[in-house]
Amino acid sequence: MTTPTPTYLAGEKQTLHASLDRHRDAVLWKLDGLDDEQLRRPMTPSGTNLLGLVKHLASVEYGWFVETFGGEAEPLWFGPHDDMRVTPEEPTERIVALYGRARAAADTVITRLPLDAQGSPPWRDITVSLRWTLVHMIEETARHAGHMDIMRELTDGATGDHPPVMGSG
């Protein structure tokens, strides 16, 4: 997890990318200090859990950034409707590592292409810009980070959208 750097005066692309990174880091922070049972514990009637949301975010990072803009995503071991479910055979480390690789692959696309670059997700008959995709993924990641914040609070009482800064009182 990286320490967020304020980008209050940065250009559009850097600002969007930093916003996405801030939410990505919050997603990973929500896992810190929890054991495997807590990460996999169903927290909603539909079975949503912290680790399942990380798995889902990994698959959508690959889809929206890599596949949409002509890249080759790594083959996933699960189907498109299984991305929010975690089986006992899926080690926590494997899912967290997948999210790390998906982020890195997405970052390569974000760095390489201009905001006006266009792509088409293979699962939909639309054309999108990298700018739209960044905004969409900020929304998607923030939405699920919020879900994770509630699940984390219900698990052990921890709250917040980022780790406390040391020495800040």
Rank of each mutant, 00 (worst) to 15 (best):
M84K: 15
P6A: 13
T2C: 06
H144D: 03
I126D: 14
L154P: 02
L134C: 09
A73W: 00
G119A: 09
T15H: 11
L113C: 10
I95S: 04
L130C: 12
H56G: 11
D149I: 08
A26S: 15
V96H: 05
L34P: 03
D82S: 13
R41V: 03
R131Y: 12
R22H: 13
V109H: 00
T68I: 05
Q38C: 10
E93H: 11
E90Y: 03
L28W: 04
Q118A: 14
P80E: 10
P122R: 11
A18S: 15
A105M: 00
A18W: 07
T3M: 09
V128P: 07
D36Y: 07
P121T: 07
T155H: 01
Y62F: 12
A26M: 08
L9G: 09
Y62E: 00
A58H: 02
P91Y: 04
E90R: 04
T111D: 15
L16T: 03
H136F: 08
H56N: 11
T48V: 05
D82Y: 04
T141R: 02
T87A: 13
V135P: 02
L154S: 10
K30L: 06
D156R: 07
S59A: 15
S46G: 07
T111M: 02
D25K: 04
R143L: 10
G157M: 08
A102L: 00
V66L: 08
P163Y: 04
D83R: 15
H147M: 10
E37A: 15
S46I: 08
T48N: 14
V165L: 13
R124K: 14
